[in-house]
Nucleic acid binder design. Structure first.
Lengths: 140, 140
DNA sequence: GTATTTTCTATCTTTATGGTAGAAAATATA
DNA sequence: TATATTTTCTACCATAAAGATAGAAAATAC
């Protein structure tokens, strides 16, 4: 049970953009992000596109174009990014769609998955990019 | 991010066997488990085999053969079953194998995944089958 | 208007999942 | 002991998703 490589790459890219966020008027080139964050350059294009559709970043083409965060780092969490790429974190099919399982509310396992999901989601929602940058700076 | 169907089926099968556990000398037939728990019968064979290798159940062939838990319900948790089928719950590659990521300890995201994993593992380890049966009985 | 820099999208390969059917093994019973 | 029965076990296949790439499309600077 893991997030996809795409989601991991997306997180790296977003972390990079969060660092660059103070430089208000600049946009980062995809190629630059790929190099710095060790992401296959041609693979990052697809990920950038998805993040853009999800409204997490703004993109612009052409010379001087590039990518930047669509909103402040404190308004973006790990959950936002992971769900934008991998879809909802359900842990088990029945959590997000109880109709797939005929046992429904009688199943004691169902409850555990629901609690586990809630707990995980809380953790990831709490991890906003401003907090991550703070931690990073504290380490150095 | 979900467990596989196999893992879900394995949980259902184990829940059934936990209910049957008091009948000390009987063994449940795979076909019976499949029918009761709504699992594709021929698919369950593969899952039973994996659970047996993992030491969670005892199997015996032939007439009067079948399957039963290898130890008490209170000594088996959801974590045991899920990991036996799907492998370790790592949430992200870097959690169980930090060498795959060159950023290592400098990465603030890594820490979040480690905490999230620990939290999830704790939850699943705490959910033993005797507790699940208790809950089930309380509902009826 | 053209060249350059960038995002975007259609396509391919590989891997894993979900599922099946038939072989092999073991026991009860005649 | 032979045979029929009941079961586990294993090799196989089809489908879908993931990972990755190269070339098309778009926008801007000059």
């Amino acid at each position: 049970m893991q997030i996809t490589r795409q989601a991991d790459y997306a997180l790296r890219a977003m972390l990079y953009l969060a660092r660059e966020y103070p430089k208000k008027d600049e946009r980062a080139a995809t190629s630059k992000i790929a190099e710095e964050q060790e992401i296959p350059a041609s693979f990052l294009a697809k990920i950038i596109s998805q993040l853009s559709i999800a409204g997490l970043i703004q993109t612009s083409r052409g010379a001087k174009g590039g990518v930047r965060l669509a909103r402040k780092p404190e308004e973006i969490s790990l959950l936002d990014v992971v769900e934008a790429i991998d879809g909802p974190i359900s842990l088990n099919e029945c959590v997000d769609d109880p109709s797939v399982c005929s046992f429904g509310d009688n199943c004691p396992i169902h409850d555990v998955w629901c609690e586990a999901k809630a707990q995980l989601v809380r953790k990831l929602r709490d991890a906003t990019f401003d907090k991550l940058l703070e931690k990073e700076n504290a380490k150095v």
